[in-house]
C-alpha cells in the first residue's frame, strides 16, 4: 500500500486522478477502522492532512459558510454553534472527544454510512457539497442528491471533497439522536429539523433509518403549513404529533444489531414531535425577546 502525501490541493487532485485505487484519508476515524479490521485493502492512502485549506472555514460575501472538509467536529462545536446550531449539535454526538478532535464532515460524506451523524442536518438545511477533480474542476452537489445508497455517494472516482456550503441558520435548529448508551454510540436513528422563519419553511432530515439520509417532504410541507407563524402562538401538540407521524412514515428502517425497524419508526415519531416543539418554543422566545427589545 502506497502512502501519498500531497502538499497542495492541486497535487491532491492530480494524485486522486492518477490513483483511482487510492482511499482519501483525513482524520482517519472511519478509514483506519476499516483498515485495521482488514475490510479494505486500498492500493494507496491519499493523506489530505498537509492541505491547510481543508481545515479552515470561511464566510462567503453572501454569508454562506464554506466549511473545509477536514475542519474537526470539536471546532464546529466551538466556533460555529451560533451560525450552524444543528450541525454543532450533531457534531457533539460524534464518537468520543478524541474522535471529535480528529474527524470532520468530509469523512462523514466520503464514507456515506447511513448512520453518519451529520447527514440529517446537511439534508435538512440544504447544504451543498463542493467536490473537485483535476480534469473537470469544481462541482456543487446538493446534499439531497449526494447520497446514493449504503456507503455510496455521487462522487466520481477522480473527485475529492473540498468543502460543504451551509447557510447560517435562518431560525431555530434541532438535532436528536438515539443511542443505546449515553455517549460514544452509533446512531440507532437520528433526526434534524431547521426552521426558516422568514420563508416560513421547515427542513428536516432522517438519519440511520433508510439506506441513505432522507428528507421527510410530506412532514416538512405539513409543518410549514400548520405552524402558527402569524400568531406565534404555542404549538398545538396535535401538530407536533402529526409531524412526528409523517417523519416516521418517511423512513424505511431495517432490523439490525442496533435496533428494530419498529423501534426506529417509533423513535423517529417521538424525536420529530419533540424537536419541532423545542424549535418552535425557541422561535417564540427569540421573537418575544426581539419584541421586548423593540419596546424598550
Amino acid at each position: 500500500m502506497d502512502f501519498l502525501r500531497p502538499a497542495t490541493w492541486a497535487e491532491a487532485l492530480t494524485a486522486r486522478a492518477e490513483r483511482p485505487d487510492a482511499v482519501p484519508i483525513a482524520g482517519g476515524t472511519d478509514v483506519m477502522v476499516e483498515l485495521n479490521f482488514d475490510r479494505r485493502r486500498p492500493g494507496a492512502l491519499l493523506d489530505l492532512n498537509r492541505i491547510p485549506a481543508l481545515r479552515q472555514w470561511t464566510r462567503d460575501p453572501d454569508g454562506t459558510i464554506r466549511l473545509g472538509a477536514s475542519v474537526p467536529y470539536a471546532r464546529i462545536i466551538d466556533e460555529l454553534r451560533t451560525d450552524l446550531p444543528g450541525l454543532a449539535m450533531a457534531s457533539r454526538t460524534v464518537g468520543s472527544p478524541q474522535i471529535r478532535n480528529r474527524g470532520g464532515v468530509g469523512g462523514n460524506l466520503g464514507a456515506a454510512s447511513p448512520a453518519g451523524d451529520t447527514h440529517p442536518v446537511l439534508v435538512a438545511t440544504d447544504a451543498v457539497i463542493e467536490v473537485e477533480s483535476a480534469e473537470r474542476g469544481v462541482r456543487a452537489i446538493p446534499a439531497t442528491e449526494f447520497y446514493l445508497g449504503v456507503k455510496r455517494n455521487a462522487m466520481a472516482a477522480d473527485e475529492l471533497i473540498k468543502a460543504v456550503l451551509l447557510a447560517p441558520a435562518k431560525g431555530p435548529q434541532q438535532f436528536s439522536k438515539i443511542g443505546t448508551r449515553n455517549a460514544m454510540v452509533i446512531a440507532v436513528c437520528s433526526f434534524a429539523v431547521a426552521l426558516d422563519v422568514a420563508a416560513r419553511k421547515v427542513g428536516a432530515g432522517i438519519g440511520s433509518a433508510a439506506p441513505t439520509p432522507r428528507r421527510p417532504f410530506e412532514a416538512e410541507l405539513f409543518a410549514a403549513d400548520a405552524l402558527p407563524w402569524d400568531s406565534r402562538a404555542d404549538l398545538d401538540p396535535r401538530i407536533a404529533t402529526r409531524f412526528g407521524e409523517l417523519v416516521a412514515a418517511a423512513a424505511a428502517p431495517i432490523d439490525d444489531v442496533r435496533g428494530t425497524a419498529a423501534y426506529r419508526r417509533h423513535a423517529l415519531s417521538v424525536m420529530g414531535r419533540r424537536t419541532l416543539t423545542w424549535a418552535w418554543r425557541e422561535h417564540q422566545s427569540s421573537q418575544s425577546c426581539q419584541s421586548s427589545k423593540e419596546l424598550t
Binding site: T93, S176, K177, I178, G179, N182, A183, V270, R274
Partner: peptide, 16 residues
C-alpha cells in the same frame, strides 16, 4: 443534558 437519558444526543429535555 448529560443528566438525562440519551445525554448530549439531545433525545429529551425532560419529556417522558
Amino acid at each position: 443534558l448529560r443528566n438525562l437519558p440519551g445525554s448530549t444526543a439531545n433525545a429529551t429535555h425532560g419529556e417522558g
